[in-house]
Design a binder for these strands. Structure first.
Lengths: 244, 244
DNA sequence: CAGTGGTCTAGACCACTGG
DNA sequence: CAGTGGTCTAGACCACTGC
């Protein structure tokens, strides 16, 4: 066993090392990481210790175990849940009844971060950010209006064309084109009335109550990488949440 | 090791046995369960196997581990989070700035279950249920209006007086007085406008958008035991959610 | 069949709690 | 100090995958 640099359980240190490799891109989303036995040999610890480290990574959805095959870097694409962070489901409860969302990019431009956006993204006011506005519709009914802000530097080269041309979840584009993996997010939810522009885009009156969902998504080490403000219509869909 | 009755991992069987004892009330909320070594001896398995079973129970918040002291049956009282299933927090983010909620029982009566209530509680339409309406206020501002339905049989003897006189979370009353522990819940969230009665109780206009939160809470073995329909004001509070 | 993750064991030792 | 949960090891065997 290796010496103890700081004081924390060995498996936590192993977990941190694996996270480091993950962040450095040593293994890419969808790819397998080395087997437990290999990792145990590399880190000079027992397989059980590596196992416990990977257990935690799997519990945090950072990695996915598949018996008989290996352990894989989690990804927002290929995942049987199409949108991992979207909790709006049709009232029917049938997740597939909607089919794929029809996506429309309304706007996409670079600008300087306002104070609130900067704070959410751990930037300074005035730093370059990318702002995107889009609408998701199901069966022709506009249901979600999203404004999102991304830090300019990591997302250099992202344009409306890249967004429009991309098949699949936006987060999977972030992964493959910019190496940014969203790992965790927190949401603040309110009930609001839309302004005129919002109402028009969602094709509702401005007296229609909507769900306001403000999400901050983080990559590794809790670094915030996206601020997203969504307006959800809840006449045919609802926000579903599980409490443990 | 004991023989294998059905085919599932040993630790899953142990987990089921512990759950059974928990449900039977062998150990009550807040009390310690036997030590891992004792349980290992009782079930004739190794400590590691008991450990894995308890690990899962702890992950599901059914049990709480405390190093050096033991493993305890989780409870909705005594918990440092006062309301485990209430995700509405003040915008300040300071969970304590509100202080304890001021609770008012508006109504409490027994009646026959309507079809939707019966379905949610796995009862038959017309079965006896208890209906409660109450308001929670913070700093004198009514913020939450809740209607809740409980199956009549397990909650025989529950009256408005019992509710009014109880200090602490309602779920902890359910635990100590009726032996019903809520273990898991699911919520459906929408944005709505209140009707006249609702608006009056929350002291808002009927054009004020509110969060509608429908919760079904389950006890052991996923048995639904409560239907709760809440209306939340989100002008000073918001619903906070973590996504993994 | 070999290689992967999944289960189970037995035992050693550590860290924390309380009397 | 004894008793608890927490970590770590080494090794055996099982279950699943794909060649």
């Amino acid at each position: 066993m290796s010496p103890t640099p700081s004081f924390s359980p060995l498996y936590q240190q192993i977990k941190a090392l694996i996270l480091q490799s993950l962040q450095a891109g040593e293994w890419k989303p969808g790819e397998p990481i080395p087997s437990e036995i290999e990792l145990a040999a590399r880190f000079r610890v027992s397989q059980g210790t590596v196992r416990k480290a990977i257990d935690e990574l799997a519990a945090e959805n950072i990695v996915v175990r598949r018996q008989g095959k290996g352990t894989f870097v989690a990804t927002h694409a290929e995942q049987h849940v199409q949108y991992r962070f979207l909790k709006l489901v049709p009232d029917s409860g049938d997740l597939d009844s909607d089919g794929p969302a029809e996506r429309t990019i309304v706007d996409c431009k670079r600008l300087r971060a306002a104070a609130d956006v900067a704070r959410a993204l751990s930037l300074r006011t005035g730093d370059a950010v990318l702002q995107v506005r889009r609408v998701l519709a199901y069966h022709g009914v506009p249901t979600i209006l999203e404004d999102l802000w991304l830090p300019g530097t990591p997302f250099k080269g992202l344009t409306a064309e890249r967004l429009t041309g991309w098949r699949g979840p936006m987060y999977s584009l972030f992964e493959t084109e910019f190496g940014v993996r969203m790992v965790r997010a927190e949401e603040k939810i309110r009930a609001v009335l839309p302004d005129t522009a919002q109402a028009a885009l969602l094709q509702v009156t401005n007296a229609t109550p909507l769900l306001s969902v403000e999400r901050v998504a983080h990559t590794y080490h809790d670094t915030p990488m996206e601020l997203r403000r969504g307006l959800y219509r809840t006449d045919t869909h609802h926000y579903r949440n599980e409490l443990g």
